[in-house]
């Protein structure tokens, strides 16, 4: 089995875990994880903006590490665990990041949102209280054209507070502006 998978030009079998579920499929070597998620698995929550690693839109996490699915071959993910936006909610309950992004309008068109939330989730996993500058650094590979990032920072901060178990609320100035 392993030997067969070490060489592929036609379709090769691939087993990976996507959002906690094992999936088995057969893919050609040139198929990227992005294409597999969107086209083979119907997980269209993962978006794409350039397919060249220049925008961050297609971010997913691979074994907990945020990566660009447009530059990741499916076959290189054999046996690994992939997390997409579809895996973020806990049952019918939104993930704290999803709640915060929704409440603060951090998703305007919503197209960069899945990738940014996954990058933010990985940040918070390693650093439960990120500073504004750490958030900027962690999200510097994800372009957004709608928000100017401000609401995104605020949402990440709010969600991080929630995830620390704090009863945080959005700042008044975030919602209404300065008085």
């Amino acid at each position: 089995m392993a030997r067969r998978r070490s060489e592929a030009s036609g379709k090769a079998p691939l087993t990976l875990e996507v959002n906690g579920e094992t999936v088995e499929l057969a893919v050609t070597p040139q198929k990227t994880l992005l294409e597999i998620l969107r086209e083979d698995l119907g997980l269209t929550g993962t978006k794409h903006g350039c397919e060249l690693g220049e925008c961050g839109t297609c971010t997913v996490t691979l074994d907990g590490v945020p990566i660009l699915s447009c530059l990741m071959l499916g076959l290189a993910c054999e046996g690994k665990s992939v997390r997409t936006v579809e895996g973020m909610a806990h049952g019918a309950e939104l993930h704290p990041l999803q709640r915060a992004f929704a409440d603060l309008g951090a998703a305007q068109c919503g197209y960069c949102t899945p990738g940014i939330m996954l990058a933010a989730e990985a940040l918070i996993a390693g650093n439960p209280s990120p500073t504004r500058d750490q958030i900027k650094d962690a999200l510097s590979g994800n372009l957004c054209r709608c928000t100017g990032y401000i609401k995104i920072y605020e949402a990440v901060e709010l969600a991080a507070a929630w995830m620390r178990g704090e009863e945080a609320r959005p700042r008044e100035e975030s919602l209404y502006g300065e008085r």
């Binding site: 794409h48 992004f101 929704a102 409440d103 949102t113």
Partner: peptide
């Protein structure tokens, strides 16, 4: 201030854009 009516779909990744 409130959650936009379409915000939940957007954070779930379930908004269907044309290429989806």
């Amino acid at each position: 201030p409130h959650r936009k009516v379409d915000a939940v779909a957007k954070v779930l990744g379930s908004t269907r854009f044309a290429d989806d």
